[in-house]
Design a protein around this nucleic acid. Structure first.
Lengths: 338, 338
DNA sequence: GCTTGGCACTCGACGCGTAAGAGTGCCAGC
DNA sequence: GCTGGCACTCTTACGCGTCGAGTGCCAAGC
């Protein structure tokens, strides 16, 4: 177990390193934080911290920098989430209140997060499986061609064109539309399959093929994978810390374009808790020198999707966590209102 | 006027510089291209080309590199668009054929363009004003709350929630829906305003307020500005040429996130012609060392939106132009089919 | 008059050795 | 257990000489 002072030394190292982006030495530490001890003592503590793997030196005679393990301890035990100031909160609310539709909410959120944290922001569209159906609309495009439109409680709209196995009359169409809505409107997506299971049977034999096709298209639309779109912003912020990582920026950009990778990272926990994933804790190799701060957000108490930021492991964790939490809360409010 | 050989020298300089990314000297030129003259002669030609502003040297005693003016001449007079090979064309078609909806088409297009050109790809969503209405749907969410869904011939769907000034009955709703569709289905967006101008008058006094609100929301939805969304991909390719421009990558990323800027750049010409904008020809300062190759695409003969790539001025123009043109053609086909 | 070979010159890239400086580890004393 | 002192290590910066690519110019040749 580390003594209280050694933890303070670790905290000071993290804070200074995040601020200066340079390895921090014992002398500088005692000057900038009044630890009440001399540099020599701090050196002893540093040696112990290094022994335990919390800090490391880039080369023999340089200052120390925190390791992933060091950041982990800092985040878990030493840091407190920094709340947003009142003006900041007002700015967030004002900015998000101007949104006109879901796309706009997401677009604004991503901009906001990127600006507040000065890092790369990632926002996942509200997931369908945890949402409810507001309405299903069926339109006839041609005798054997339909369009299915699905509207969710979060304001999202999905549409699919369906080629029917046989022509489908207007009366049958109206019938199907009405029955479908009466069964699933207001219900959760995940409950839909069993609610419509027996629907084809109640139609004329000629129409059953089309009804089945419509239903299976509907199911496909519900499948999470297709729906978990992401929006990314603030990639220009990557260049802020690229001067010592001119080579690191590429894998990060590549990873950011691999939506699958990001989704897995965001989706690891399904709760609303804030998650911080540091350096090598990220499964994806390209993100080994970045940290991801993410949190669930949603219109009720329940999370429907995640948002977060991707930045260097050397980031301002308290500030970033505060910004991410605040944005998630306000987005949740906006979604609940609309 | 420049002699034929001098133009050949310029062409050779552009080709070599694009290939090697290094200033090209007179000796190397005569070795790699059989110009039939000695290095000394080439030097004279180079001096003339430099005098005219087509090439420049980074410092005394280095090879020459093309200037923006040099690239301009190359693109206008010396280069021929390089057609895609048959296997490449097949690959493009296969890749795009797998798309399930408009979002998917756009997403795939952007990936494809980025891969083919190894540069940053930009694809604009089909613009509404040049599209036609396939269907308008009105749904009742609550007694005084409607949802308007607009479906375009390119498969795009837009929705808006409308708060009505007064409750609106189901019969009135069905009436409005039917009349609206009979008037504007199949018509161009730009013609819609005058087609529905007198619609409120034909409704009961109590309902007119709501009808007007619905119509004005519909108009808003048609306004181009809201609709010109862009999708960007392949930003990781920026790092390929960042080694000598570690400082240039940031303004480019910033410009790419400023959709307004990009839209203006793409939108300068409204035709289907291929446009190449080189270096300082770009109004936006951050893009002064990049070139933009763009072209209109659309489901018939008419362009409904643009797509293109952003890369260093030192790019393979013939190849890039070939890829952009080919992709635009195939996307147009896909849109026409669906 | 255009082309060519020769030649002196310029200037960045590279390698190397030195000096400076920051920071450490260890030890003896309090 | 803390502190000051000291020798040691290693990186970084700087200066300097060399090397080589490439140029511009000039006089000679076709």
């Amino acid at each position: 177990m580390l003594s209280e002072r050694r933890l303070q030394v670790l905290r000071a190292i993290v804070q200074d390193y995040v601020g200066t982006e340079e390895p921090v030495g014992s002398k500088a530490l005692t000057e900038r934080h009044n630890l009440g001890v001399s540099p020599a003592t701090v050196r002893n503590d540093m040696a112990a911290l290094e022994e335990e793997g919390y800090i490391a030196q880039p080369h023999t005679s340089a200052g120390r920098i925190p390791t992933d393990k060091g950041y982990r301890l800092f985040v878990d035990k030493l840091a407190e989430i920094k709340p947003m100031s009142a003006p900041e909160r007002r700015a967030i609310q004002n900015f998000l209140d101007g949104a006109v539709d879901l796309d706009d909410v997401v677009a604004r959120t991503v901009r906001l997060l990127a600006q507040l944290t000065r890092q790369v922001a990632v926002v996942q569209y509200p997931s369908l499986t945890r949402s409810t159906v507001r309405h299903v609309e069926l339109l006839s495009l041609a005798p054997a061609r339909l369009m299915l439109v699905l509207i969710t409680d979060t304001g999202r709209v999905e549409q699919r064109v369906i080629d029917c196995p046989a022509p489908f009359g207007e009366t049958s169409l109206a019938d199907l539309r009405a029955r479908l809505n009466s069964r699933i409107a207001g219900r959760r997506f995940r409950d839909v399959p069993q609610l419509v299971e027996d629907l084809p049977e109640s139609f004329e034999v000629d129409d059953r093929g089309t009804v089945s096709t419509v239903l299976s298209t509907l199911m496909e639309t519900l499948v999470e994978e297709n729906e978990e779109r992401l929006v990314i912003g603030g990639t220009a912020n990557l260049t802020r810390f690229a001067h010592d990582f001119p080579l690191t920026i590429r894998p990060v950009l590549e990873a950011l374009e691999e939506q699958v990778v990001l989704l897995r990272l965001l989706g690891e926990t399904k709760s609303t808790d804030m998650t911080v994933s540091i350096g090598h804790e990220n499964a994806h190799e390209g993100l080994n020198s970045t940290s991801i701060v993410s949190v669930g957000y949603g219109s009720g108490g329940e999370a429907v999707a995640k948002l977060g930021v991707v930045g260097p492991t050397r980031m301002d964790y308290p500030g970033t966590m505060g910004a991410v939490r605040a944005v998630a809360r306000y987005v949740g409010q906006i979604l609940a209102e609309s």
